[in-house]
Write a protein that binds this DNA or RNA. Sequence first.
DNA 1: ATTAAGTATCGTATATTTGCGATATAGGAT
DNA 2: ATCCTATATCGCAAATATACGATACTTAAT
Lengths: 110, 110
Amino acid sequence: MAITKYDEFNIKEKKIAQLCKALAHPARIAIINFLIKKKECICSDVVNELPLSQSTVSQHLKELKNVGLITGDIDGPRVCYCIDLKKWREAKKIINLFLSQDVTQANKPC
Amino acid sequence: MAITKYDEFNIKEKKIAQLCKALAHPARIAIINFLIKKKECICSDVVNELPLSQSTVSQHLKELKNVGLITGDIDGPRVCYCIDLKKWREAKKIINLFLSQDVTQANKPC
DNA sequence: ATTAAGTATCGTATATTTGCGATATAGGAT
DNA sequence: ATCCTATATCGCAAATATACGATACTTAAT
């Protein structure tokens, strides 16, 4: 594209879109589900779980970390990943607020 | 990428990711907000509202339609777009179910 | 000291997304 | 019949995303 128009939208719209973007790949959904189930894990646990290479998993983890949904704490040679509970709830609230708007049909449905 | 691994994930993960993907751009969030507010609108209404060209808006509408969140009914030379209430609620339920999982911290936070 | 395990990052290839102008088409109005 | 409005789609360019192997780095274990 010539120029990205991303920044011409308002903060709320961008925030919702940003969170959804982080969740817009099944691998990242699977990672989050796995993390919720296991409470914590290291990168190689995810690699064993998913049909993806180590470097690819690392990238997906990075994206989730960048958007704040997970934390990654160095633990010796490993990195221990966890859901960031505070951010997770925040994300849930933001997305829910958007999804929970009162949608009414038009009087004369087109 | 060599091959997309998209299909190697389970149906639920893919469904969540697919819905989030449709919401992963601020323009599409803005379109949905606009549609909820106006109850119905035609493509050119959206073009007047957003800082995007007609063809680009048309593409975003198409994506929302493809994922089922909106309907587009031909009305003379125009196309009347509306939120698909049933699909919208379905999407809300699916995303909520994912976001509402009980997240507990590890005993020994890493 | 050497080795092994775990991870991040780089480089690269390919696919997808975003965006626009131009164009084609369809329906209404004059 | 002609024109105007509304829209979708095509063709193109650029940006991003996805994926992997190779590599570098760090720490723990031997």
